[in-house]
Amino acid sequence: MGLMTVFILTGAVAIAAALGLLFARNAVYAVLFLVLNMFALAVLYLLLGAPFIAMVQIVVYAGAIMVLFLFVVMLLGAEELKEDGGPIGWQRPLALVLGVVLLAELAYFVFAASATKARLLPSPDGFGDPHAVGLTLFQKYLLPFEVTSVLLLVAMVGAIVLVRNGKRTADEPTGSDAD
C-alpha cells in the first residue's frame, strides 16, 4: 500500500525531527528541526484529507511563527547555551522514565480502543477542501472566529507594550511616538 509507505516515511521524518529538537545543541538547529517536523505533519494532514490545514500549517506555522522564533534566537544571541542538567540534573532521568511510562499508557489507550482500529475508508468528495472549511468557519464558528481576531489584536498590543523601552514610557508625553 503506497499510502502506508508514505505514512511510515513521513512519520519517521517527524519523529526524527522531534528528537533532533530534543537533542540539538544549537537553538538555530532546533528551530530548523521543528520546521522539518512541521513540514512532515503537513504531509500527514494531506494524507488525512485536510489540504487547507496543511497549507495553513506550512504558511503560518512553519513560515511565519518559526521565522519569528528564528529571529528572536538570533536577536538575543542565544544559539549556544550550556546544556547540562544544571542545578536540577536529577530530574532528567526521572523525566525519561516518566516519558516512557506516559508513552506506554497512551499506547495502551490507542491500541486497546476498538474505534480506531479499523482502517480508514476513502474520504468523501470535497471533505476538508477550503470551500467546505470556509462555510463551516463562517457559519457555525463565526463568533469564535471574531473572538480570535480580538485575541490577536490584544496579543499584538501586549507584545508591543512589553518590548517597548520601559524607562521611556512612564514620563513621555502622550501622543508622542518619537522612539
Binding site: 529538537l21 488525512l48 546544556e83 497512551l106 490507542v110
Partner: peptide, 28 residues
C-alpha cells in the same frame, strides 16, 4: 489505508518527546 490508531500513536509519541524536551532543556 492507514488505521487511525497509527496516527494517534504518532501524535502520542511526538507529544511525549515534546514534554520530555520541556523537562530536559534549559534554553527558554
Amino acid at each position: 489505508m492507514v488505521p487511525t490508531s497509527f496516527y494517534i500513536f504518532l501524535a502520542a509519541l511526538l507529544f511525549t518527546i515534546g514534554a520530555v524536551a520541556v523537562l530536559f532543556r534549559r534554553n527558554t
